[in-house]
Simulated scan of single mutants.
Amino acid sequence: MKSLSRASLVLMTSLLALSLAACSGKKAEEHTPTSEQGGEHGEAHGSQPVAKWTYDGDTGPMHWGQLGGAELCGTGQRQSPVDIVGQPKMQLSHMLLNYNSVTATIQNTGKTIRVTPANGGELDLDGDKYPLKYVEFHSPSEHALNGHQSTLESQFVHVDAEGHTLIVAVLYDIGAADPMLGSLWTYLPTDPGQPMPLADLLINAQDLMPGTQDFYVYSGSLTTPPCTEAVTWMVYASPLTVSAEQADAFQRLIGPNARPLQARNARDFFRVVGTN
């Protein structure tokens, strides 16, 4: 099995065989997530401002495509999240998770909990470096594996120097408590507001991930308005666990914040195993 460069990764994740920049039809910075409060992955730089949106009611996911600036949520053909089914083709990739143990902030945006590390490191995929920008959480999980939707999903948003977005997703099922999440959850802000320092706590993204490098990979989109496409998703094949108490703490604070599953359309999934 051969190694994957960014170009080959993008080719295999789209039957259209287009590069990330070409398939978006936009400049690189136009699909770079921002840290704007209120959105899961923020609004895209240079894009039309998105009208107010929510996770329910007349401005909920079923209506996002009708909101100003979010038309792609209704018309896009490569939208996320998806149900990853079957036995995808296997590929090998040279992968290094070069994350740092650093200080960070935590924020209740009103729609999610966001943790932003200071110089959190990067994911190196066959020599292509994707710096980590922030981590966000969703309950229930946005992605599903063979029809199974987990209790919680964390999403590690990376953006490279050219503006390409890569998001690593970790699913959590109910089971033993997760110690690192337990440390984070002691700082959960009860009300929406500005980022607050995680005092006396260093964050390393790898501590919040499984110990394997086994992913399902596909080409998709941001899961909140404006639902920008040309996003590479790497979903860990092995879920972690959280306790019922940890899941309840998040759900009581934020409430349901998962976009419904989207149509697969003409897309392939791949199983990528990292090697050092």
Rank of each mutant, 00 (worst) to 15 (best):
Y187N: 06
P117H: 02
Y130I: 10
L171D: 04
G110P: 08
I113H: 02
P140F: 07
G121R: 06
I167T: 15
G120T: 03
L198T: 12
A118F: 13
P192G: 05
G193T: 11
L184H: 12
P179F: 00
L145M: 09
E142P: 02
P226F: 04
V157H: 04
H148V: 12
W233M: 04
K129H: 08
L184Q: 11
P239Q: 06
G193S: 10
A230L: 04
A205M: 05
S141W: 04
E136F: 10
S150N: 06
P195V: 05
G121C: 11
V159Y: 01
A161V: 09
Q194C: 02
H138W: 03
D124H: 03
P225H: 01
D178R: 02
P197S: 04
D200K: 08
T186A: 14
Y130A: 07
P210K: 14
L181R: 05
V170F: 06
G147P: 07
D173K: 10
A205L: 06
D173T: 14
H158F: 02
Y187C: 12
H158I: 03
T151P: 00
L152N: 04
S183H: 07
G163Q: 07
P195L: 06
Q206K: 09
D200C: 00
I203M: 10
G193C: 09
D126V: 08
D124S: 09
E142G: 15
V242Y: 02
G127W: 01
N204S: 01
